[in-house]
Computed example of a mutant assay.
Amino acid sequence: MVEDDVGIGRFISHGLRARGLSVQWERVGSRVQNLAASGRFNAIILDLLLPDSDGLDLCRAIRKAELGIPILVLTARTGLDDRLDGFSAGADDYLGKPFAFLELVARVKALLARDQLRKPDPVVIGPLRIDADVDVATWDGRTIELGGRSFAMLLALARARGGVISRDELLDEIWGESIVTDNALDACASALRRSLSAVTNRAIVAAKRREGYSLHIADAGTDGGES
């Protein structure tokens, strides 16, 4: 939920949590696109009048990034032209303020049901594109040849958008409940590096000592250029 009004934000978040939903409340728009791309959320409640950005611009950016996460616009802009602008920007639903809380709950639940039917969003970071629904990763249009575990590791790291994922989290993500040695993760990382190096040396899989791994995409023209 993206809402800068403290009273409204607290009311909605408490009410939805009381109905068994998990809510992350953001008061500004700066992190919204990365959060939407993380794969951790199933719907967005989006105010349009934010202190640091325009909600319509955020909505457009999310759709331009090919993120299909359902978006419910919740705003004081209630005119016909405002609603049309919202849908044109990619909103799935539009609710004006003031609103009935039970109606908001019903609309959110409808979006969550819709989210269960959509295929996974592609993860796009610069030239890197990962289509999880078909297990294909490309760099600037070139297919990256990956084994199943390397693909799972690349997908998990890419979704973190540069953040460090712990070793335990990666083991769970890649092997599930299977019991493997800790060295298996390092071997998987080495295999992933080899696969990436076949198409680029800008995709860097970095090991953080006693923490985990992260993925960094170096700028073009920095150390090193394309292979």
Rank of each mutant, 00 (worst) to 15 (best):
L50A: 15
R60Q: 15
P127I: 01
R118V: 09
I71K: 12
L112M: 11
K97M: 04
G68R: 10
K119S: 07
D115H: 15
V124T: 12
D57A: 11
L128C: 06
N42C: 01
F41L: 03
S53I: 04
S53R: 07
C59Y: 09
D133W: 02
R114T: 05
P127K: 13
T138K: 01
G86P: 01
L146I: 06
R63D: 13
L72G: 05
L112Q: 04
D121Y: 03
D140H: 11
F87K: 07
P70F: 06
Q116E: 05
D115V: 01
V73T: 09
A91G: 05
L84P: 12
G90C: 04
D52P: 08
D140R: 13
R118M: 04
D54H: 04
I44L: 14
L49W: 11
E66R: 15
G126T: 03
A132H: 08
K64W: 03
S53P: 01
C59G: 05
R83A: 09
E66P: 02
R118P: 01
L117G: 03
L80Q: 12
P98F: 13
W139I: 12
K119T: 12
L50W: 14
R107F: 09
T138A: 03
K109A: 02
L102Q: 07
L80N: 10
I125D: 09
V108H: 11
A76M: 14
D93L: 02
N42K: 11
R83S: 03
L84H: 14
T78K: 05
D121A: 14
A110H: 04
P70Q: 10
D81G: 02
E66T: 10
A132R: 12
D131P: 02
R77Y: 11
K64V: 11
E66N: 13
P51F: 12
P120S: 10
G79C: 01
P98C: 13
L46T: 14
P51G: 08
P127F: 02
R63S: 14
D82Q: 05
L104Y: 13
G147W: 08
I44D: 03
L48Y: 06
G126C: 03
K64R: 10
G55A: 04
L56R: 12
W139R: 03
P122G: 10
A76H: 09
K109P: 02
E66Y: 13
D81R: 14
E66D: 13
D135M: 10
G90A: 03
R60A: 01
L74R: 10
R118F: 01
D93G: 01
L58D: 02
A132S: 14
I44T: 11
R77A: 05
F41G: 05
I144D: 02
D121N: 15
V136H: 08
W139D: 04
A106P: 08
G55S: 10
D140E: 12
L95Y: 03
R107D: 08
A132G: 08
I144F: 00
V123D: 12
G126H: 09
G86D: 08
R118G: 04
D85V: 00
A65V: 03
L74N: 13
A113S: 09
L146E: 14
I144Y: 00
L102F: 04
G90E: 14
L58V: 07
L117W: 05
G90M: 05
K109M: 07
K97F: 00
L46C: 10
G86E: 12
W139Y: 15
D52L: 09
I45C: 08
A43I: 00
D47H: 06
